[in-house]
Each structure stands twice: as structure tokens, then as C-alpha cells.
Amino acid sequence: MNKIQKQRLAWRTGFFLLFILAPVLDLFRFDLEKNHFILLTYPWTLGIDAFKSGDIGAMEMALNMGLRFFLPLALIVGVGIWVAWKWGRLYCGWLCPHFSVVETINHFMRKASGKLSIWDREPLPEKQADGTCIPVNRKWWWPTVLVILGFSFLWAVVLITYLLPPKEIYYNLFHLSLTRNQALFIGVATFLFIIEFTVARHLFCRFGCVIGLAQSLVWMGNKKALVVGFDRARSTQCAECDASCEHACPMRLKPRSIKRKMFTCTQCMQCVEACEKVHENDPRPPLLHMLSEQCALDVSLRDFGLKPNIPSDCFPPIHHSEAEKQD
């Protein structure tokens, strides 16, 4: 695991813990009983009830709507669009708690079946050119099933704490005294998550997640956005590899293809790391790099059959003397 992947693991872990603890600590949740948001332990209301009762006037109500609804919404959407425009699905690959579950289940399922998804036709090689060695053992299906069940139940419980008082939910859960509606919500949600995490987690990330889909659409609109670039001038060198970059992709994409076919790239950069490992003892530089601005056009504009002039410094030069020594 290189430095970037260690940083990504730290960000994902921290955000996943925040996702679980935010309602418990009253950092953010919507209280159905009080019918308003709670933000940083304080009630976040628009003052609708106060306006109806005559406690505040129309001007104060309009001010509340502007400062507590439209302004925060504009900031969140604006920052989200700006980040997606420059870096794509950065939230998905570096923060999203759902994608953390996807990657974790991928890891266990690959140990159990050699595949990242039950829908994959062929298993991945147990030993790869990037040094990855994952022997397949059907005994890993038991941990895989437990991980899926555990995450499904956890997500169901956490989601209800965003709507009802967390202390009440966890107390009732611990004492096995959930109300009928609480038990029904957790039971149905757990069942649905089991199905999604088992057979449709990649499909959900690609086309079912509104946040992810919006990021992809914005990213596709910027031809100079950050993207995985492939040094096409040395494409013959890929014949020496076993497509380790494709095997490393948790979304099962082909990093050497055009941008349109990488529509759901989460910018996790695991393909780049795999390529670096393949070339770890090779004097020639890796063929995959993260590119932006003019360098990104080679990947973006090829969607339209164009072959733009790419700056010569987009990819590190190969030192022929070293390559000859290697040969």
C-alpha cells in the first residue's frame, strides 16, 4: 500500500466513523419527533411553527429560509460541483461510507471466489504481475456472508438513528425492546441491504446513487479534469503485464480506455498503484498516471475520435540506456 492509499484508508475510516457517530453525538440528524434538523447539537429550524403562531414576522421567516435553507444548500451543491468538476468522484473514492463497504466486500468475495462480484464470468488470477497474491478458498464464504450481514444490519441501525433519537434506538436494541415500527424498519432495511451488498453494490454505485451519478456527469463535462492517463506511446509494454490495473479497480473498469468508458471512476487510484508495483523493479516508468489540464485531453477528447497534441511532459520520459540494460 503506497502513501496515497494509506491516506485514502485514513480518510475513509474517519468518515465511516463519522457516519456512524454523527447522530449519536448530535452532529447531524433529522429528528422526526421534533420535525427539525439538529446540527452540531443545536436545533436547526426554519421557524415555520413560530411563523404560524405569530411569534415571528414574514421578514424574519424569509431571513430564516435564506440563511438556514437556501444558503447552506447552495454552498453544499456549489462545493460539490466544483470538486466534481476538477477531480470527479473524489467523494466516492475517498469518503463515501457505501463505497468503503463495496471495497471491503470485494476483498472478502475475491478470497472466497476469485471474483469481485458474483456476476463476473471469470475469476481473477491468484498471482498477479503487481505482486498481489490472493489464493481462493471457499472457506472465506463464511466470513464474506458475516461481513455482508454485519454491514447490512449496521447500516439499517445507523439510518434509523438519523431519524429517531439514537439513545432510544440503541437502548431498545440492547435490551431487545424495539417498538414494532423500529423493528420493522431495521428488519426490512437489513434485508434490502443484504440484497444490495450481495448482488447489486456495483450497480448501485454506477447508476443508483444520485450523488455519484451527479459527480460523474459534472466530471464528464470538464475535458481537463483529473483522470487516469495511459502512456499510449508505450502501449506494447502492456503485453508484458496481466492487466493488474484492471484487477485492482474496485469498480471493475478498464483504466487504459477512454474517459467515457471510465464514467464511474471513483479516483481511488488503485490502478495507478498496481501499475507502479508492476514497474517496481523496472527502470522504465509506469504507464498509468493521474493527468489533468492539457494532459487530460488525450483521454477525454478520444471520446470523439480526436487525437489532440499532448504536451511532451505529461508522462515521464524513458531513459533508453536504462531500458537497454534491462533488456
Results as ranks from 00 to 15, higher is better:
228 V>N: 12
230 F>H: 10
230 F>D: 03
231 D>S: 13
231 D>C: 07
231 D>L: 08
231 D>Q: 10
231 D>I: 03
231 D>W: 04
232 R>N: 13
232 R>W: 12
233 A>L: 12
233 A>V: 10
233 A>P: 15
233 A>G: 14
234 R>S: 02
234 R>T: 02
235 S>M: 09
237 Q>K: 15
237 Q>T: 09
238 C>Q: 11
239 A>Y: 06
239 A>F: 07
240 E>Q: 15
240 E>S: 15
240 E>V: 10
240 E>G: 12
241 C>E: 04
241 C>D: 11
241 C>W: 14
241 C>R: 09
241 C>M: 14
242 D>N: 13
242 D>G: 07
242 D>A: 07
243 A>Q: 14
244 S>C: 14
244 S>T: 13
244 S>K: 10
246 E>W: 02
246 E>N: 06
247 H>E: 12
247 H>A: 09
247 H>G: 05
248 A>P: 08
249 C>H: 00
249 C>G: 01
250 P>N: 09
251 M>T: 00
252 R>G: 07
252 R>Y: 10
253 L>R: 01
253 L>H: 02
253 L>Q: 04
253 L>S: 07
254 K>S: 08
254 K>Q: 13
254 K>L: 12
254 K>T: 08
255 P>V: 00
255 P>K: 07
255 P>Y: 03
255 P>N: 08
256 R>K: 15
257 S>L: 08
257 S>C: 10
257 S>R: 09
257 S>P: 04
257 S>N: 13
258 I>G: 05
258 I>S: 04
258 I>P: 02
258 I>V: 15
258 I>K: 01
258 I>D: 06
259 K>S: 01
259 K>T: 00
259 K>Q: 05
260 R>T: 12
260 R>D: 09
260 R>C: 09
261 K>N: 14
261 K>T: 03
261 K>Q: 10
261 K>I: 05
262 M>F: 03
262 M>N: 05
264 T>E: 03
264 T>C: 01
265 C>D: 01
265 C>A: 06
265 C>G: 00
265 C>F: 02
265 C>T: 00
266 T>P: 02
266 T>I: 10
266 T>G: 05
267 Q>H: 09
267 Q>G: 11
269 M>Q: 04
269 M>N: 06
270 Q>K: 13
270 Q>Y: 13
270 Q>N: 15
270 Q>G: 14
270 Q>D: 14
271 C>V: 09
271 C>N: 10
271 C>W: 02
272 V>F: 05
273 E>G: 08
274 A>F: 06
275 C>N: 03
275 C>Y: 02
276 E>W: 08
276 E>K: 13
276 E>P: 09
276 E>H: 14
277 K>D: 13
277 K>G: 12
277 K>W: 15
279 H>F: 02
280 E>L: 07
280 E>Q: 15
281 N>Q: 13
281 N>P: 06
282 D>L: 00
282 D>K: 00
284 R>G: 03
284 R>Q: 10
285 P>I: 13
286 P>A: 01
286 P>W: 00
287 L>Q: 03
287 L>I: 01
287 L>C: 04
287 L>F: 04
288 L>D: 06
288 L>R: 04
289 H>S: 10
289 H>F: 08
290 M>S: 12
290 M>H: 12
290 M>Y: 11
290 M>K: 09
